[in-house]
Design a binder for these strands. Structure first.
Length: 369
DNA sequence: TCTGGGGTCCTAGGACCC
DNA sequence: TCTGGGGTCCTAGGACCC
């Protein structure tokens, strides 16, 4: 029988800020933007949650609810540092850990009983290690698969520990709301409500074929499995695609082409720097434009060869801009994404037709060897 | 309420090939 | 003359997650 842990750091960004600056302990801390600026709440302390502040809420709304809060810009590098310390601790408990975000990871704990005792005991040791070495609290969920472990860590947050005992999966799920299910967002919830499906037992009473007819093949299968405690395979062992992107929301909407071009040039340089730094090759570039009414459009282009410079990227981006921008409209956000990334030395099939190849025997040898 | 930034995956249609 | 499927690549939009 498999045993998985899901480890979730409690109010992670806020906890790091409070740890680094003890004056913030006990106070409502809100990470995102400063009051009066455009932005949403990235994370907030439990003290802030008492005022009704939540992740993804506009900062303007957070400020209305919690004017005495401490508003802080995110320090992603710092959070990544602390994250890697925690991940190292997790590695002491399982050889198979799978980090899914800066503050979350799965551990395969199958067959670790001889080393750490029963799962609950192992989890208690793990929580203590993290607390002792970093001062942070985590929540741990234990279950026979990753999907349920994820729901279990959420169930008793913060500083939580909960095991879904094998055999009790449906009993556990029936205590949750539909919106608690990982992968059910606003739209799916609306659709289910339209169908008068309001609870997990409601959802479980539908046959798979009917759910698929109502919700689409893949969503239907997902919903059918999830309410039965069957892992729908949300967590990919290895990602199917990779992309990098940079975007910027202007502090005020603009139609000033100089401003827009300057920002697109800067985004191009930042992205190509990251691309080369992380040793990716890329053939697909995409431009995103969000207008002041929040309507958003993307336009993309796949090149016959890999991207070689920021100047080349910017020149394509200008073309895409000219193809898509509706002259005179106010722009709220611009963004660039590089998709179809593949590692150097692991050529994509399409690279066979890369012109560079014809004159480059070294690459050719490397490919065939 | 006036809505960030960085990601992954899915869908659906068209082009093109066998 | 009308009619097959299957597969891959590409594009644009959308759902969802942290």
């Amino acid at each position: 029988l498999n045993v998985y842990f899901h480890v979730d750091m409690d109010a992670f960004y806020a906890a790091v800020e409070q740890h680094d600056n003890p004056e913030l302990k006990g106070k409502p801390v809100i990470i995102g933007a400063k009051p009066g600026e455009r932005g949403v709440v990235s994370a907030c302390s439990y003290e802030a949650r008492k005022f009704g502040v939540r992740s993804a809420m506009p900062v303007s709304e957070a400020y209305r609810r919690c004017p005495k809060g401490v508003y802080i810009y995110p320090k992603m590098k710092r959070y990544a540092e602390v994250s890697s310390v925690v991940m190292k601790i997790l590695h002491n408990f399982s050889p198979e850990i799978h980090q899914i975000s800066v503050d979350e990871a799965f551990l395969n704990m199958t067959g670790t009983q001889l080393l750490f005792g029963p799962p609950i005991q192992a989890a208690q040791q793990l929580k203590k290690s993290v607390k002792d070495e970093t001062g942070l609290t985590i929540s741990v969920g234990i279950a026979a698969n990753r999907f349920l472990a994820k729901l279990a860590s959420e169930f008793k947050k913060p500083d939580g520990l909960f095991e879904v005992v094998p055999g009790n999966e449906e009993e556990f799920l029936d205590q949750l709301e539909l919106s608690d299910l990982w992968g059910i967002g606003k739209k799916t919830l609306e659709r289910l409500t339209e169908l008068n499906i309001r609870s997990i037992p409601d959802l479980r009473s539908y046959e798979e074929s009917l759910l698929q007819a109502m919700m689409g093949k893949s969503s239907g299968a997902f919903l059918y499995n999830v309410v039965r405690g069957i892992d729908p395979g949300v967590v990919q062992e290895t990602a199917k695609s990779h992309s990098v992107s940079n975007e910027i929301t202007f502090s005020r909407d603009t139609k000033n082409l100089q401003t827009i071009h300057r920002n697109l040039l800067e985004l191009s340089h930042q992205l190509v720097f990251r691309l080369f730094d992380e040793e990716w090759n890329c053939r697909t570039i995409s431009l995103k434009i969000r207008y002041s009414d929040f309507t958003t459009t993307t336009i993309q282009r796949t090149l016959p060869h890999k991207l070689t410079s920021a100047e080349e990227l910017f020149s394509h981006i200008k073309d895409l801009w000219n193809d898509r921008y509706i002259a005179g409209r106010l722009v709220r956000l611009i963004g660039i994404a590089l998709q179809n990334l593949y590692k150097k030395g692991e050529p994509q099939q399409s690279e066979l037709f890369e012109p560079e190849w014809k004159n480059n025997t070294i690459s050719k040898k490397r490919y065939w060897s």
